[in-house]
Design a protein around this nucleic acid. Structure first.
Lengths: 131, 131
DNA sequence: TCTTATTTTAGATTAATCCTTAATTTATAT
DNA sequence: ATATAAATTAAGGATTAATCTAAAATAAGA
């Protein structure tokens, strides 16, 4: 446990619910530790993911997003602006029946609701009617 | 409708179920049309996605994967080797209750089951016990 | 055929992530 | 406290998927 890791974890805890990218985490850690390197942040994030205390989310944008909230939940993302919200979901309702597992050892399940947030929905409507 | 687009669509139809990456599609199209460019493949894929006849999948690997099968289904992916299988799921069972939409206009829902395929599961077990 | 709008190309560019190597730091045992 | 071994960090270059640009080529319609 190094000062760098403490700082990274601190930033992750402070940004709970905001689903930051690796780059955003890097920038925030830099604020309190200006000499930290890219590689350290990436390495640490990967270790935390490996340990299971951090979720790495592929929500369709180019970059990975990280979520310190490892309790069962789904994500709701805006296709317009990339905004991400946590939403509850019933993991019981979603199990893969044995005949469809292809012999896989299933570890978890990711659920992503996609749509448009209020702001982007109105803008979208505007774009559609004018173009 | 250009020969390039016909070739790309042809490749997509032939690779149904294999969830190819843009690069794989590019390579396969090259086999029958050696001078086609990267940009053309990317542009065409994006147009098909826009039209709704092609799905762009973010399954956690670095690259996007494409799926010509636009019927309601989920994906089962191997965290070891990246293998992807289509699996059925009951979209009825998975709706976001109105009080959790954050005002979003929800368009669709993506479900990804993650795990280890038979081959990777046994290898994983081996790795674990030896290191 | 001729015109216009669209598409394609080649190659440069971007951006996120990963890798390499040496120096530093931490943890451990004395 | 000190020595040692193991793990971590930093710097910056490498990689790679994807995107952009501007000019050339092509398709579609009159």
């Amino acid at each position: 446990m190094t000062p760098q890791r403490r700082a990274i974890i601190q930033v992750l805890l402070e940004s709970a619910g905001s689903h930051p990218t690796a780059e955003q985490i890097f920038t925030r850690v830099r604020d309190v530790m200006p000499d930290i390197s890219h590689a350290t942040v990436y390495n640490t994030l990967h270790e935390l993911v490996e340990m299971g205390t951090l979720l790495e989310l592929n929500l369709g944008m180019r970059e990975q997003r990280y979520d310190i909230n490892t309790t069962d939940h789904a994500h709701l993302i805006c296709l317009g602006c990339g905004r991400v919200e946590d939403v509850p979901y019933d993991s019981e309702a979603l199990t893969l029946s044995p005949e469809h597992t292809h012999g896989f050892q299933v570890v978890d399940c990711r659920v992503i609701f996609r749509g448009y947030c209020p702001a982007c929905a109105s803008q979208e409507r505007h774009l559609r009617s004018s173009g």
